[in-house]
């Protein structure tokens, strides 16, 4: 295929987001505010890392890439294409929940669109992932609505979290200047601009039910850079920790 480089670019940015956010979600294990939330974030971590693995496997098996484990654990920071949104530390629970809501809704519109992809491995994977994501968005929507309707302090915190997270979340939809036109022309996916639009339509009704005000999207500046290898100061320490065991002996068989 002539557009292998474009496909790889898209897969890597999707997979890296899943891997890094999966890692962040797993940091709630043992620390969740209530037991069910501890379990929820741990389960979602497992799902995300599973989705990353499935994407890295497509790279490996269909596009001649490296073995998923090596690709995930040995790459340099610069070679990662994760968005800044997923790299940030968990902070308070309001930020983690808001990030989860904005990211998983974005992921949902993306996988929905991939059901019609011209790239067959995307069609197969998206069917599987889409069903699983239902539970992520069910969880996210429920908590966003409940906490926003739970009193003054709670509402204020959720609104602040939304205000602080929206530009970062918009950064998920950073198109690759080199490959975007090819991917759209080849009908691999509808393109970041279209997904950005669908995502806003998806999150809006939940925000309305939560009485949260979506900032004027025309005034925000999406936080770009991650897709081009420019990262926050938080990614490198995360990569070091994540690959600590693997890098003790990269040839070991687990």
């Amino acid at each position: 295929m002539s557009n292998n480089a474009a496909l790889k670019d898209l897969i890597i940015k999707m997979a890296d987001d899943e891997l890094i956010l999966g890692h962040r979600n797993s940091e709630w294990t043992g620390l969740g505010p209530v037991m069910e939330e501890d379990i929820a974030f741990s389960s979602m971590a497992q799902d995300k890392i599973g989705h990353a693995w499935a994407l890295y496997r497509i790279l490996h098996e269909d596009l001649g890439g490296e073995h998923p484990d090596r690709f995930a654990f040995i790459r340099s920071e610069k070679a990662f294409q994760s968005s800044h949104l997923v790299e940030l530390p968990n902070g308070e629970y309001d930020f983690s929940l808001m990030r989860h809501f904005l990211f998983d809704q974005a992921e949902t519109v993306r996988y929905e669109s991939l059901q019609n992809s011209s790239f067959a491995p995307f069609q197969l994977l998206s069917k599987k992932v889409k069903g699983e994501l239902k539970y992520h968005t069910l969880h996210a929507d429920a908590w966003i609505m409940q906490l926003s309707n739970a009193g003054e302090e709670s509402y204020a915190r959720m609104q602040t979290a939304l205000n602080n997270t929206i530009a970062l979340a918009a950064g998920i939809f950073e198109a690759s200047p080199e490959h975007e036109a090819t991917l759209i022309a080849d009908k691999v996916y509808p393109g970041e601009k279209e997904l950005y639009h669908r995502w806003q339509e998806r999150i809006y009704p939940v925000l309305v039910k939560s009485s949260l005000n979506l900032p004027d999207m025309s005034t925000i500046t999406p936080v770009y850079g991650g897709r081009q290898g420019f990262h926050t100061e938080y990614l490198q320490p995360l990569l070091k920790e994540m690959g600590e065991v693997f890098n003790l002996d990269t040839e070991a068989s687990w």
Binding site: E36, E37, I39, A40, S42, S43, M44, Q46, D47, Y135, L138, H139
Partner: peptide, 13 residues
């Protein structure tokens, strides 16, 4: 429904 996530990926509480 108390949580859509349980002790394994396939379970809800």
């Amino acid at each position: 429904l108390r949580s859509p996530f349980g002790s394994t990926l396939c379970r809800a509480i």
